[in-house]
Design a protein around this nucleic acid. Sequence first.
DNA 1: AAGTGGTCTAGACCACACC
DNA 2: GTGTGGTCTAGACCACTTC
Lengths: 248, 248
Amino acid sequence: MHLRRHSGVPLYRQLESDLLERMDSGELGPGDRLPPETELARRWGVNRLTVRQAVGELARAGRVTVRRGSGTFVAHRPLVIAVDLPPLPMTEAERSSSAAFAAQDHDPFTEVVLSVTDDDRTVAELGPDPLVRVESVHTTESGDPVICSRYWLSGRRFPGLSGSLTDGRSLYTALRTDFGTRLWYGWRSLSAVAATAGEADALDVVPGTPLMLREGVNVDETGHPTVFLSRRMRGDRFRYVLRYDTDG
Amino acid sequence: MHLRRHSGVPLYRQLESDLLERMDSGELGPGDRLPPETELARRWGVNRLTVRQAVGELARAGRVTVRRGSGTFVAHRPLVIAVDLPPLPMTEAERSSSAAFAAQDHDPFTEVVLSVTDDDRTVAELGPDPLVRVESVHTTESGDPVICSRYWLSGRRFPGLSGSLTDGRSLYTALRTDFGTRLWYGWRSLSAVAATAGEADALDVVPGTPLMLREGVNVDETGHPTVFLSRRMRGDRFRYVLRYDTDG
DNA sequence: AAGTGGTCTAGACCACACC
DNA sequence: GTGTGGTCTAGACCACTTC
């Protein structure tokens, strides 16, 4: 690996990427100890503080575990503990996402589609079709970006989707009016993650800021999984509330 | 304000506390610009990097907004957007929290009570009684601390609670066996926050790591709010799953 | 004792925002 | 242009873990 100085990409981000690649390729496995910071600095020809900045980002992202006096270790693949809530009644996806903001008399967000791109990634949930990825940012009335979303859909089922999204319509509106597809909630999951550099940029926060990650699948009328979505919300701006009936 | 060097408390934490106090006292109000980093460094007699470390923590915690080239500003009180889920049936708090881990045949966590202390704080939700605060840490079978919890209860209603918790019993067990109180879910909320220094220490992560914050109230048989709880879970280890019935 | 990460300094240059 | 935060360096000392 070689570092490119003055390339516009900070050195510590390049180091971070390098370490991530090594972890993803298996060169560095879970439980392995990283070389000491002084050694990494020497090997890369950078200052130790620069190394520390890279390692700090990885630590907040949960990819490494730092143990003072002992070393920095590749984190084990997290054993994710899924907490299942009781099944909820299936509701129409678009309508109920607005209905959730009961106190408002209109949608408090402006959604702007940033890009519609072909994606070679496939999502098992949606089958083997080539996917189209839609990226958008939601902004409050006062102009703060607070949500960034990614949607994946079958490119085969929704040909020419990008043309439907150029006039500022939301994805769900386009799917209903141009393709006659109405969507319903399939499942949702909630967790907490650190903002990457790109997400931090879009949401106007510093990298590492806690975001609430909401992933899920929307299904069509026949129950077929149709849209996979991944939404990140500023953790300090959103709160999911579960109320329990106290009549029992 | 004066800084104490070599006091065991890092300088940047002292700066952080000082800025927080000024924000909480109203001396620095929402939207106000902080003095430039160079000015803060000069005024406090520390290096600019030390100031930056303090400001970085505040930024990840959402207390300040950093704008490159323009300044650092006190964040506005976040307009929290509450997303209400449909009401769920009230269930017994202890039983269903274990039942949520359906795949397991036993509770996968060990809960250790760290402290039981009187607290002059009051929680409106629980009434005017003086409160007792219980702190605990939950550990997985492999020994990883993954949850830290705080509970607040009426000290008047549960006198001598600390004596009931010394033998390793869980709070709910103690309340049932020693006080005859069974608890039920009232409400819960979910959001994402940054780990403070203390939480980071308890959960073996670096400060600023995203945690899932779950707050709520448990009620007794009569529906009376009885326990306020605040639980922080490692964001990379927990995932809440909501399933929707697809039979409709 | 040796090695690790944690904190802190002094100084430099750069990119961006605002006037 | 001036001022702001963003990045980076060289060097130092400390606290903790491990042997």
